[in-house]
């Protein structure tokens, strides 16, 4: 029981790190983005290359993951996405599916179809005993990072000028524009930050998930689920949803392995039926 909750929390923290940017960009711009996992994958490969090919340490790899996610996110935003904010959701879906396909093919071309090798740094390796259960240090590290990031984001959104601008734009974009907020630049900054966090999460995921080229497609549903269940445009919504999805997924696979990933979808349908607008509804929603 304890270990299931613990592993679920670790998986949830990872899901939160990758998906939180998606939540904010979806809430801010109503942009249906299926390709968010591609930025996480970019971060994962960057971290892997930095460690395996150049021999840097784990912290440098995490930084590389963040930078790779942010840079690729900013490039995609400037080149394509900003033209699609006002498009029909179908076009956004098609474009982002196309981006997923192209990124899978590109990753396969450069890195091959197999999993990337990764070894957890010695100071995070192994287990520790807690209340009679053997828990993994790396997963504890994931949970701690997740909590720090959620605290930083909530504080940043609440206390800083930039956060106030984001809140204003999420609540009512037109009025925010009217108040002189440069919403276009805000979009770019938020998209970049969100993709950077996804890349950071992708780098962290090396120690828990398998990183191969189908990563964006394999976990796409999880990221979308977190945003959809949690409520787009908020920080705490996806955090709660990520923990629920993480624990639900691990518990489902642990207790009823024959049904595979099936239970998590039932859970999602139930949550969506109960709260169609998400667990935490953003202010100013219709």
């Amino acid at each position: 029981m304890g270990i299931v909750v613990f592993d679920g929390l670790a998986f949830g923290a990872l899901l939160f790190l990758i998906s939180v940017g998606l939540s904010v960009t979806m809430g801010l711009m109503n942009f249906v983005n299926l390709a968010h996992g591609a930025f996480a994958m970019a971060g994962g490969y960057a971290a892997s290359v930095v460690m395996n090919a150049y021999g840097f340490g784990f912290p440098a790899a995490l930084l590389a993951g963040f930078v790779a996610g942010a840079v690729s996110g900013a490039a995609v935003e400037v080149l394509f996405v900003r033209r699609l904010y006002r498009s029909h959701p179908l076009e956004q879906v098609l474009f982002t599916i196309g981006l997923v396909f192209a990124s899978i093919a590109t990753a396969t071309y450069f890195f091959g179809p197999t999993m990337q090798p990764f070894s957890i740094p010695p100071y995070l390796e192994g287990n520790f005993a807690f209340l009679g259960a053997e828990l993994s240090r790396y997963r504890l590290f994931l949970i701690v990072v997740g909590v720090i990031v959620v605290a930083a984001l909530v504080l940043g959104l609440d206390r800083t000028r930039f956060g106030a601008m984001i809140r204003a734009a999420v609540d009512n974009q037109r009025v925010a524009r009217g108040c002189g907020i440069n919403v276009d630049r805000l979009f770019l900054a938020t998209f970049t930050l969100g993709c950077g966090l996804a890349g950071f999460g992708g780098a962290l995921s090396l120690g828990m998930l398998t990183l191969n080229p189908i990563f964006p497609l394999k976990y796409m549903v999880y990221f979308l689920m977190v945003v959809c269940v949690g409520g787009a445009g908020t920080i705490t919504g996806p955090f709660l949803a990520a923990l629920i999805v993480g624990i639900g997924d691990v518990a489902g696979k642990y207790y009823v392995p024959q049904t595979g990933g099936f239970l998590i979808y039932l859970l999602m349908l139930a949550l969506l039926l109960a709260r169609p607008n998400g667990l935490v509804v953003k202010k100013g929603a219709r």
């Binding site: 394509f80 196309g98 981006l99 192209a102 396969t108 071309y109």
Partner: peptide, 17 residues
């Protein structure tokens, strides 16, 4: 299949743009 996927992806992006 990767080749097919790459061009399909680019094609989708192009058709939307």
């Amino acid at each position: 299949p990767e080749f097919w996927m790459f061009w399909l992806g680019l094609f989708l992006m192009a058709i939307v743009m």
